[in-house]
Simulated assay, not measured.
Amino acid sequence: MGRFDNKVAIVTGASRGIGLSIADRLVADGAKVVITARKEEALAEAAKSLGDGNAVWVAGHADDEAHQDETIAKALEEFGRLDMLVNNTGINPVYGRMIDVDLGAAEKIMRVNVISAVAWAQKAYHAALKDCTQENGGGGIVNIASIGGTKPAPNLGMYGTSKAALIHVTQELALELGPDIRVNAVAPAVVKTKFAGALYEGREDAVAATYPLKRLGVPDDVGSVVAFLLSDDAAWVTGQTLVIDGGLTLTGGV
Rank of each mutant, 00 (worst) to 15 (best):
N113P: 12
C132S: 11
G197A: 04
K194W: 02
Y125E: 01
C132E: 05
A124H: 05
G157Y: 01
Q171C: 07
V191T: 01
D102Y: 10
I109M: 14
V169A: 04
F195N: 01
L166Y: 06
A127E: 04
E172K: 15
A185P: 05
A119Y: 09
K151H: 10
E176I: 05
E172N: 15
G140V: 09
K192E: 03
G148Q: 09
N136M: 09
G137K: 13
L173I: 03
L166Q: 07
V190K: 08
M158V: 10
P154Q: 12
L173F: 08
N113D: 13
G138K: 10
D131E: 13
L173E: 00
R111V: 11
G157S: 08
N113C: 11
A117R: 10
D131M: 10
H168W: 11
T161A: 14
C132V: 08
Y125T: 03
V191Q: 04
V183S: 08
V114E: 10
T133I: 05
M110Q: 15
P152V: 02
I147F: 01
P188M: 04
H168V: 10
A174D: 03
D131G: 15
A105L: 15
E135C: 13
L177T: 02
I181N: 01
K163Q: 03
Q122R: 15
A121R: 08
T150M: 12
N184I: 06
D102G: 11
A165G: 10
T193R: 03
G148I: 02
L175F: 14
V118G: 14
T161D: 05
